[in-house]
Design a protein around this nucleic acid. Structure first.
Lengths: 164, 164
DNA sequence: CTTGGAGTGTCAACAAGGCTGACGTATTAT
DNA sequence: ATAATACGTCAGCCTTGTTGACACTCCAAG
């Protein structure tokens, strides 16, 4: 099996290398969420609100069930977040026309404004990291992350990429 | 500024590319924590316990303050986790010899066993992802993650790498 | 037209794991 | 002596996750 790779070095698969990757993920994820978290705490929102707003912006008109699957939480959990966002006028819930049981979610202008604010903060850090690392590193970064996802999340991710 | 990079393509810095990276981080982090989370929930432990055990294993004899800085939580939060780990005989807290105010943390045999179990699960996924992506991708992956960290976390990460 | 099931919303209760603030107690440093 | 440090702990609050139960609307199949 190792020989099947044509004798190339497999040193990048040592436990120590893997552990470094694990720790890198941990520390990097903290940085990844730090900037939006600061903005959110001023508004007494949390990460769950950010995630909802992000994916509603990404796929306007998405149904609650759809969002549930992407976010991987229970409807009760999502509903609590969604309710505050609707009350605060950031999200609009429209009864479906084809299937009137469904609620289609859209951002209001205020919602889009918040999304942009959060996105900008998060993208600024990503942009700096991407620029520091360069295009080849970025390609590798995405490749590893995609391989790390659960199969169903990889599918969801793929669908979102198509839309982009 | 763009010209300063020698005219190379900067398409990897578009907002759409950045957004894909953001979503990749989100989905990948879920996969990253999924396997240990399953093990932990059977033991009525959480991610916080995993993190503590991981870093105590990584830097045996570390002090509480040290761990606090690495984990980025309050001492009250850490203490709650640490207390259960000590009660359950997974972690040992030894009074410092030089400075007797300090408590030095060590894993017991049982603690090491749990750490290994969690590590193995997490590493298995990382190893699969690394192997799928290949060594060049892994190098890029780490480069981007490191660039994404806060400065102080990058320092902490560097220190841990030296030890490894 | 009735009935089952899907999609949704909501109530209640609970737990993990963050947070702040305050206080106590060794121990060390000044 | 006094101040600062390291740690533990109590109390209380928040977000965000969980289960379980129940009701409502609406679609589709019988």
């Amino acid at each position: 099996m190792r020989e099947g790779l044509g004798g190339e070095s497999l040193l990048f698969l040592t436990d120590e290398q893997l552990r470094q990757g694990i720790e890198a993920m941990f520390f990097a994820y903290r940085g990844f969420t730090a900037d939006p978290d600061r903005i959110l705490s001023d508004l007494s929102y949390g990460r769950a609100h950010h995630r909802a707003v992000h994916f509603i912006n990404r796929a306007p008109g998405t149904t609650v069930n759809n969002l549930l699957a992407i976010l991987g939480v229970t409807k009760q959990s999502l509903n609590r977040v969604l309710r505050t966002l609707i009350e605060d006028g950031l999200v609009e819930s429209r009864v479906g026309t084809e299937d009137r049981r469904e609620r289609h979610l859209h951002l209001t202008d205020a919602g889009r404004a918040l999304e942009a604010r959060l996105s900008d903060a998060q993208r600024a850090r990503m942009r700096a990291a991407y620029r520091d690392a360069g295009p080849e590193a970025v390609a590798g970064f995405k490749q590893v992350l995609e391989a790390m996802m659960d199969a169903d999340m990889r599918r969801a991710y793929g669908k979102l990429r198509e839309k982009g």
